[in-house]
């Protein structure tokens, strides 16, 4: 258990909208806490977190605008920083050097990792499509900005992303064709263009029950039969998608089943994650 959480100090969770990325991030933080580790859960898009802070879990929001302003303030532009924001120059800078806000957010995460803000840092990252752009920002800026503090920052973040003991990306998907296709595209883009290590893939909301046998003796109009047929077609679709995923992207996976009760989804998923992680090692 602790081996898994010790393998990387930062886990950036990414996935297509609707796959349960935020739920999985929260469950991961809870699973780490249950293993006796402190975790820092970082939310990036201003959405409220699904877990509240405890003695083991700290929740923190980082927005691109804040990261940019903070950067100006710590780089000798403190006096000007308010004026920069109100005059709109901050937008000019962000547009002149695309990805600078993403770089600064990653720089902030890297700094938190460096100062060991928690045993493990979990980032509820951007949606899958944007994850690639987000993580590519340091490379792009490193290549375009000739010298100066931004280039230094980009270099530091590139080192952080390239070191699997410091940072890994955990991709989340549903067992359905469209999110699986998108996950595979994202995984290859991240490996090829960003060079970041991939943590085990999380396949979320899998139907727990196996295929049901429908005996010929039952009335075919019974709701039990329609329900069973629906279940079976879901299970077949999921099995097909999972096997497609493993053929095209041979990585270990953590399989989470459909939450049993709505009130404790996060606890339920945290328990599942713990037992799945144990099976990994």
């Amino acid at each position: 258990m602790n081996n898994f959480f010790a393998s990387s100090r930062t886990i950036i969770v990414a996935g297509k909208g609707g796959v349960g990325k935020s739920t999985v991030s929260a469950a991961l933080a809870l699973a780490a806490a249950q293993a006796g580790l402190t975790s820092l859960l970082i939310e990036l898009d201003g959405k409220p977190s699904l877990v509240s802070g405890t003695s083991h879990i700290t929740v923190r929001h980082i927005s691109p605008a804040d990261a940019l302003t903070e950067y100006f303030e710590t780089h000798g532009l403190a006096r000007l920083s308010k004026r920069l924001v109100s005059s709109g120059i901050v937008d000019v800078v962000a547009t002149a050097a695309p990805g600078i806000d993403d770089l600064l957010v990653l720089g902030k995460i890297k700094a938190l990792e460096r100062e060991r803000a928690a045993d493990i840092i979990i980032v509820d990252g951007p949606a899958a499509g944007h994850a690639v752009t987000f993580l590519q920002a340091p490379r792009a800026l490193y290549d375009t900005v000739g010298s100066g503090p931004i280039r230094q920052q980009a270099q530091d973040v590139l080192q952080f992303l390239a070191d699997p003991t410091r940072c890994q990306v955990m991709l989340v998907t549903l067992a359905e064709a469209t999110p699986v296709n998108e996950l595979i595209d994202t995984a290859f883009a991240l490996e090829d263009r960003v060079g970041v290590a991939l943590a085990p893939i999380v396949i979320n909301a899998i139907e727990e029950q196996p295929l049901l046998e429908i005996p010929s003796s039952i009335e075919t109009t019974s709701p039990l039969v329609t329900a069973a047929r629906f279940h079976n077609s879901r299970v077949m679709q999921q099995t097909e998608s999972i096997s497609d995923l493993h053929t095209r992207l041979p990585l270990p996976s953590l399989r989470l089943t459909y939450g049993s009760s709505a009130s404790s989804v996060i606890e339920d998923l945290a328990n599942q994650l713990r037992s799945q992680i144990e099976q990994l090692s």
Binding site: T144, V145, P149
Partner: peptide, 9 residues
């Protein structure tokens, strides 16, 4: 700003 992000930008 040019010193921070580079003059060409």
């Amino acid at each position: 700003i040019a010193r921070v992000v580079g003059a060409s930008v």
